[in-house]
Design a protein around this nucleic acid. Structure first.
Lengths: 341, 341
DNA sequence: GTGAAAGCGCTAACAG
DNA sequence: CTGTTAGCGCTTTCAC
């Protein structure tokens, strides 16, 4: 086991390189490269000999070197809030499928809704020179990214606009919330509560705006106590809901701002005697059986669209940054059609 | 915009390199490297000048080159079945958290339960020289991986054993299923149906084995028509369930082999007049409100454990491959406590 | 405290 | 059809 003094720790477990393969096959380095990359200009016989050496040695091309030379990593980064959130699973999978179709791998990171962590992740991805980046912004200051984008890392913002000039794929939060609240109003409600995510988050405020729009359309004056924005922590949401429902003049319906809020709201309502109407933003698995009326957005479509835009950029498209807004859909299942008691 | 003839396409959008920074700061290349990597031996004054050049140029270290030199990519690969499956979201997130704590990024890929695609993914990850690999096997032949493992890519198999000698983290599928079926038997059922995933999948057969064990323990002879293995496609599961429930001597209870099967089973049962008992493997969001009794496995714990094992290997542990089996937990919520009608 | 030189493993360019 | 050379941007080594 005599190792050279220069490399006391064998790299990559001493994997064979193209040079080793070339030596064993008795050909030049470039010929091996040709075989490995299926480039033309190698006789079947030479190819066979090279292939044998590859198999015998267990050679596997080192993509790090390749990347360094070619300048493309064939990988894209996806920074989202939380991979464990059922909304982001399908989104992520859709991005992955598109990436796969383009021969790229997906590096995934969760920001946990922390702007610093988002930046840290994005910059790490940039240092890896991912070809492109799909970001669901946690923070609202993306100046740190401008440099990177200018330097050539294609970027698409998803779900929330990124405050800088780049492609964007969003769901129609405003319109969806407005429709959902209008639906409750149409069923006789006037005292409607809104429980949403932190106001720092764009979708949260957009949905709140939709709520206000629907209320205003109906000539209803919103009382402060009907609105609660904050973390989606179950305890926080539970308290907010209980408070609205136990007030002297309680709300008769709730609009929940996203899937995390909805599941807690459903649990709270399940524990109460008087039925309270509910419409939630985002569909949830088994919501059909529970009869939960929702505003559904297609997470997979969002992811797919974003990824397609990204690869269009990578393939050279250089039109002005596009802003795509995907429609939402109201799915009535019972909870949103309850009348005030 | 006169570019050199050799590089018609600017790499990385012509990003500055350490050399550029060095030139601008009027120092040597190595000094820049020292500053970038916070190595000691640089005067505060020099450091400041270098830092200024870095900021002015918008320099960001190219990790591809670093990786090539250092032999470690600070990234790990996770190959699972489907990122969109609610079981894998939390698992993936848990892996990511551990990776993050070790300064590594996560490259994620879905095999879609296709052995070829699994292999393709794994080999792509190996070519990138990920430091480690967590694989939820789709296929059952992993000889292609032996070479890679020998070459130094630490590997942990998750959820299903990988048929080769490596670390493994599993849930107790056999024990969990046995307990779940025994629970149904304890509530008076004898004609119990089992609907599971494809027999190619290890957990599917383990859970079936658990079913048989519980039935045997109770002296019940299982009839062929009570067992159905196959894809988790809703149509397939629906048909299987309907068939068992509509037989001349119908089953009075169902055990569903995973979360995908359970959601369809719940829908089928919801549409029937006579109540049928159900216990499902894997917990599901809102299952509490629907009163679904489940055998719960902690996806996050599985992911965390696997990742911790992996990094222990990467940090030099070289004990014999370990096999960890995580316990499951029966959560009675009503559907499993129904008596035969 | 600092820097020049070599080289990681590969691909681009160019000769033969 | 094949091989040689240079160099991607960084870290390592070693000399100053």
């Amino acid at each position: 086991m005599a190792e050279t003094a220069r490399h006391p720790e064998p790299r990559y477990g001493n994997r064979p390189t193209m040079k080793d393969v070339a030596a064993r096959a008795g050909v030049g380095l470039k010929t091996v490269s040709r075989v490995v990359n299926s480039e033309p200009g190698v006789t079947p016989d030479t190819e066979r000999r090279v292939q044998e050496a590859i198999d015998a040695l267990g050679f596997r091309r080192n993509d790090s070197a390749r990347v360094l030379r070619k300048g493309r990593t064939a990988s894209i980064g996806l920074v989202l809030e939380d991979l464990a959130d059922p909304f982001y699973g399908p989104l992520s999978r859709a991005v992955e499928e598109v990436a796969r179709a383009h021969g790229a791998l997906l590096i995934n990171g969760s920001s946990a809704e922390d702007p610093e962590r988002e930046q840290e992740l994005v910059l790490a991805l940039c240092a890896r020179r991912v070809d492109g980046l799909i970001v669901i912004p946690a923070g609202d200051d993306h100046r740190y990214l401008e440099q990177e984008i200018k330097a050539g890392i294609a970027t698409v913002f998803v779900d929330r606009p990124g405050r800088i000039d780049a492609d964007m794929v969003l769901s129609d939060s405003f319109g969806g919330a407005r429709q959902g609240v209008a639906h409750l109003i149409a069923h006789g409600h006037r005292r409607i509560g809104f429980i949403g995510d932190q106001p720092r988050i764009h979708t949260a405020t957009e949905r709140l705006r939709g709520y206000h729009a629907a209320m205003t359309d109906a000539g209803i004056t919103v009382e402060d106590s009907w609105v609660s924005l904050g973390s989606t922590d179950p305890d926080r949401v539970r308290l907010a809901a209980e408070t609205m429902l136990s007030a002297p003049e309680p709300v008769t319906a709730l609009f929940s701002g996203n899937n995390r809020v909805t599941v807690t709201a459903v649990r709270v309502l399940a524990g109460r005697e008087r039925p309270v109407a509910l419409v939630g933003f985002d569909d949830i698995e088994l919501a059909d059986l529970l009869g939960i009326t929702v505003i559904s957005q297609d997470a997979a479509a969002v992811g797919r669209t974003a990824a397609e835009h990204l690869f269009r950029r990578l393939d050279g498209a250089d039109h002005a940054p596009a802003r795509v807004e995907l429609p939402t859909r109201l799915i009535p299942r019972g909870s949103g059609e309850l009348r005030p008691s």
